[in-house]
Amino acid sequence: MSKIIVKSLKYKYPLTEALALNGLTFQIERGEFIGIIGRNGAGKSTLCAALSGLVPHFFKGAYGGSILIDGINVKESKLSDIARKVGIVFQNPFTQMTGAKDSVTEELAFGMENLAIPKTEMVRRIDDALRLLEIENLRDKNPFELSGGQMQRVAIASILVMLPEVIVLDEPTSQLDPQGTEEVFKAIKRLSNQGMTIIMVEHKTEKIAEYADRVMLLDQGQIVAFDPPAKLFSLSNLEERGVRPPVFTRVAKGLDIHDQVGLYPVTLESTVNEVQKVYESH
């Protein structure tokens, strides 16, 4: 059974005219890693907000269609109930800290306190999350004294302890330095390996190509394509949609290196292999 079933989802922000989401229908299976790409304004963040219930419970506006997550209807559920199913992580690690807690452990406990989780259970989940994200050494630090990459991992951990089945990440690394970006990607990869469903908006197509099982390309609030990375990045009109394929794919396209069904390599490894095949047979 699909984990997430979205049917003709439409949404318009208050005081605007254009539909931010214009008839999305798709399904996501349990444990998939989904990348969402597209130009600014394509509807990526709005889709994240819809999957996590912020649309329509935090942002009002006109809503049509439905999202079912694990059998619960997002539109008809309360935000705090949706939060148990879906966690969301935003771009700016800074505004995700509560500002009311002065250690990382207490910061992580915040969501569980709201859900009335007993203390012993909190401690267990916090230990698990700290270990999984490799931030055990930060447990007693003040959240605001951390680096961007560390703070963003704390933000992810603070969602993780609520044991959601799906984590939605809206450009979680765009404000981080290369090291912080790498730390966060590794952490997300580990979550994915543990069987968690990951939905991630990201401009870095090289990363998406490496990590995602399937990639959704949005434009003007609609799905242009929703395919495995190799198929999606092999499409010919991506630039018109405001997306540059991974540099590896651009190289392969330039060299006309593709498989029998016309798919280009999209990751460093596959491109190295394919180029070697062609250029060493000469």
Binding site: Q175, G242, R244
Partner: peptide, 8 residues
């Protein structure tokens, strides 16, 4: 380049 898409 923070938050810019590819056209940006």
């Amino acid at each position: 380049t923070i938050a810019q898409d590819d056209p940006g």
